[in-house]
Simulated scan of single mutants.
Amino acid sequence: MEKNYQKEYIDISTELRKSNSSKESLYKLFDLLYEIKKVNRTKSENLTLSNIYTFLGFHQSAFELYKSNIDYKDRKVTKKLYTLEQKAKSHGNNFITKDIRKLRKKNEQIKLLREDFKVDENEENKFLLKNKDIVIFNKPVKHDKFEIYMYGDYKFEDYITKIIKYISWLENCRNVLIEFYNSELNEQTEETANEDWFDTLEIFSVRIIVGQNGKLFSEISAGDEFMSDHILDIETEEQKITQMNYDG
């Protein structure tokens, strides 16, 4: 007996609304999403998948799938297509609901060596990673989103071991980050950071700085689910969070 994916979607989405988007209900919807993506889908199942994408905030994916599986002679259908297109243009797949189960997986830091770094062609005090990606706050960060600045009369070779250890500390300072958010931004946003908040962070760019005083600093540009249309700027000095604020 073939599964009725449309009925399953309706049942789960109803459960989600009634449970105020409980984790258990969200996991059911994600599991349905993964299952439908694996099967050889009919046009009807593609439209169900489009509905799931819309529910989860994948507006670009929902629009593209919907427009390739509809009858353009149906005015009601073309009206929905227009609505999906506007959402795709304004939101893309940028403000999605995330499957925390996958984000909670531990990302392992790749071993870094001196030869993995290079001097920037245009700035002699700026250093870049050649091709290895790193892990910051348990999130993979592409090598082209990472940079190091050296100030003062310090040599990069003298700091490379400290910098690699600093990256290791930034890899997963979960508790420090959560505690700082709740002490500094909780009143502003009326939101309380927890493990789910940490796991759903996105990292846009990372800069490590060797300051004039020889101390290590970092400036991290991130995004979170509390204020998804703002950039969350995070600054550290040595192994301490010093500043966190929203920009935008």
Rank of each mutant, 00 (worst) to 15 (best):
N4D: 12
Y5G: 00
K7D: 14
I10M: 13
I10N: 12
I12Q: 02
I12S: 05
L16G: 02
R17I: 13
N20E: 07
S21H: 15
S25E: 07
S25I: 00
Y27E: 09
L29Q: 04
F30S: 03
D31F: 06
L32H: 01
Y34R: 00
Y34V: 00
E35G: 02
E35L: 00
I36Q: 01
K38V: 09
V39W: 00
N40R: 07
N46L: 00
L47T: 01
L49E: 01
Y53Q: 02
F55Y: 09
G57R: 03
F58K: 01
Q60D: 08
A62K: 00
F63N: 05
Y66G: 01
Y66C: 02
D71V: 07
R75I: 10
V77A: 11
T78K: 02
T78Q: 02
K80H: 04
L81C: 10
Y82L: 15
T83E: 14
L84K: 10
L84A: 01
L84R: 10
K89Q: 06
S90A: 15
N94V: 06
N94P: 04
N94D: 12
F95V: 06
F95Q: 09
K98H: 13
I100M: 11
K102R: 14
K102S: 08
N107Q: 14
N107E: 09
N107Y: 04
Q109H: 06
K111Q: 12
K111H: 12
E115W: 08
D116T: 02
K118T: 14
N122G: 09
E124L: 11
N125V: 08
K126W: 10
K126N: 05
L128A: 06
L128V: 05
K132S: 03
V135R: 02
N138Y: 03
P140H: 15
H143Y: 15
K145D: 09
F146P: 02
F146T: 08
I148G: 02
Y149E: 08
Y149F: 14
Y151T: 04
D153M: 05
Y159Q: 15
T161D: 11
T161Q: 13
S168N: 12
S168M: 11
S168A: 10
W169H: 05
L170V: 06
C173I: 07
I178C: 06
I178K: 07
N182T: 05
N182Y: 02
E184P: 04
E184D: 09
Q188T: 11
E191F: 13
D199L: 04
L201W: 03
F204K: 15
F204S: 09
I209K: 14
I209H: 09
I209P: 07
V210I: 13
G211P: 01
G211C: 05
Q212P: 08
I220D: 05
I220K: 04
S221C: 14
D229K: 15
H230L: 13
H230V: 05
T236D: 01
T236L: 08
E237I: 09
E237K: 11
Q239K: 15
Q243N: 15
M244W: 09
M244I: 04
Y246R: 00
D247V: 11
